[in-house]
Amino acid sequence: MEKKHSKYPINHIVGFALSITLTIIAAWTALSSGLPTMWIIITIMALAVIQAAIQLFMFMHITESGATNAPWNMMFHAFVIAAIIVAGSLFVMSFGFTHDHGGGDHHEGGGSESHEESQEDHEGH
């Protein structure tokens, strides 16, 4: 990607357009799509991950050869650790029970979803 010394920053413009579009889609999904809550959460989190990838690859030049492969290697592991920290905390602090904290059903829903994720992480390691 970085080898092409084009005068016109096409990568950046495409990346910018994509990130604005994805933000609008995420906002629309959350605020006016009328999907079930669980689907909204899954959709907009997926959109966020895509946006993060756009920043990393199109703006931050993560694959550039000058820096070897340490950057994307560490970024990959950082995302694994992030998943362990977030999903693991939710899993542990849900205590494995399904009683109501007073926070409503949605909170518990988040707990059981993360529960599956954390299982994947264990295997991933």
């Binding site: 993560i62 000058g66 820096a67 070897t68 340490a70 950057p71 560490m74 970024m75 592991h77 950082a78 995302f79 650790i81 992030a82 920290i85 977030v86 693991g88 905390s89 939710l90 602090m93 904290h101 007073g102 926070g103 409503g104 949605h106 909170h107 988040g110």
Partner: peptide
């Protein structure tokens, strides 16, 4: 530059701890 990327990886761990705290305390 490599060092800074590694620092950013540490920053991801830092922010994900904050996200985890926020998520656990949600509601």
């Amino acid at each position: 530059i490599v060092g800074f990327w590694i620092f950013l990886a540490a920053e991801i761990a830092l922010f994900s701890t904050l996200f985890a705290t926020y998520a656990v305390l949600f509601g």
